[in-house]
Simulated assay, not measured.
Amino acid sequence: MADAYFSLFTLIVLIPLALIAFVYFLVRPRPVKIPIKNRHVFITGGSSGIGLALAHHAAAQGARVSILARSRNKLEEARNAVRLATGIDVSVFAADVRDYDAVKRAVDEAGPIDVLLLNHGVFVALELEKQELSEVKFTLDVNLMGSFNLIKAALPAMRTRKDPQQPVSIALVSSQAGQVGIYGYAAYSASKFGLRGLAEALQQEVIADNIHVSLIFPPDTDTPGFAEENKRKPELTKIIASSSGAMKPEEVAQKTFDGIKSGSFIIPCNLEGIALSLATAGLSPQRSFLMATVEVLAAGILRIAGLCFQWTWYTSIEKWHNQRKAGSPQRS
Score class of each variant (00 low, 15 high):
W311D: 12
V124R: 14
G46V: 03
F22A: 14
A78P: 11
D96P: 09
E205N: 03
T315S: 15
K104L: 14
T86E: 07
E229M: 08
Q323V: 04
A187E: 06
A153R: 04
P234N: 09
V180M: 15
F257R: 02
V180A: 12
I34L: 12
T293R: 06
L283Y: 03
A253H: 08
L283V: 00
F123T: 07
H120D: 04
A110I: 11
V252A: 04
V23C: 04
P35V: 00
L172S: 01
V97K: 01
A186I: 03
P16K: 13
C269S: 03
Y24M: 12
A157E: 08
D114C: 01
A187C: 13
A63M: 06
V206C: 05
I317A: 12
V92E: 05
G46S: 10
G327D: 07
S332F: 15
L17C: 15
A78I: 00
N73W: 02
L155S: 04
Y185W: 13
Y183M: 08
R72K: 11
A227C: 10
P31A: 09
S244Q: 15
C269R: 01
L52T: 12
T237H: 13
V82D: 00
R72D: 02
I317R: 00
A305W: 10
M145W: 14
V136K: 00
V294R: 04
L68K: 00
V41E: 04
D96E: 11
W313E: 13
A326M: 09
A60H: 04
M145V: 12
V213K: 09
Y188T: 08
L128H: 07
Y24T: 14
G184S: 08
